[in-house]
């Protein structure tokens, strides 16, 4: 059966390369999965690991961080700083039972709209195979407030 699960990816795009790559993908009418919700940052080095955890906690199925290729960072080597943090974050996420495909770091130059679109498509497929994350509901066992209140009324 075809998998119709539409994952939600939070995409942190750097202002200089990957955001422009995404712009280019759009301008060139390259169609890709409408799953990535973009957040523009000046540089991937601005992306705090807390942002990634926050997104996963608040319901994202995956997080994509996209920056300039190493050596092409507009802030000399912000992308390498991002890579350093990302490498350690990956080790942490592994311990938290979060699959590698859920948080990805990719490089996309301003001219690589196609590559960025492909990265989103690829990630979407990978997340589709993994299924939803829904951290608060499935991991923390939280239920929406409204439901719990209703249950409380029935129980009371």
């Amino acid at each position: 059966m075809e998998n119709h699960f539409q994952p939600i990816i939070v995409g942190f795009l750097c202002n200089w390369c990957s955001y422009r790559a995404a712009d280019l993908a759009g301008t060139a009418r390259i169609h890709y999965a409408p799953t990535m919700r973009p957040i523009r940052v000046m540089c991937t080095a601005r992306v705090e690991p807390e942002f990634v955890l926050k997104a996963l906690r608040e319901g994202a199925d995956g997080v994509l961080i996209a920056g300039c290729h190493p050596g092409e960072c507009h802030y000399v080597e912000g992308n390498i700083k991002a890579l350093r943090r990302f490498t350690l974050l990956k080790a942490l996420l592994r311990q938290f039972g979060i699959e590698e495909a859920r948080v990805q770091l990719v490089w996309a130059a301003a001219s690589e709209g196609k590559q960025l679109a492909e990265a989103v498509d690829r990630m979407t497929e990978e997340l589709r195979a993994l299924g939803p994350l829904r951290w608060r509901e499935t991991v923390l066992g939280e239920q929406p407030v409204a439901r719990r209140m209703a249950e409380a009324e029935v129980g009371g």
Binding site: V10, R37, K54, E58, R134, R136, E142, V145, A146
Partner: peptide, 16 residues
Amino acid sequence: IEGILWDARQPEVLWL
């Protein structure tokens, strides 16, 4: 992040 995930996140569960 909270805003962009408005349809995915559940409302804050407080002490009940």
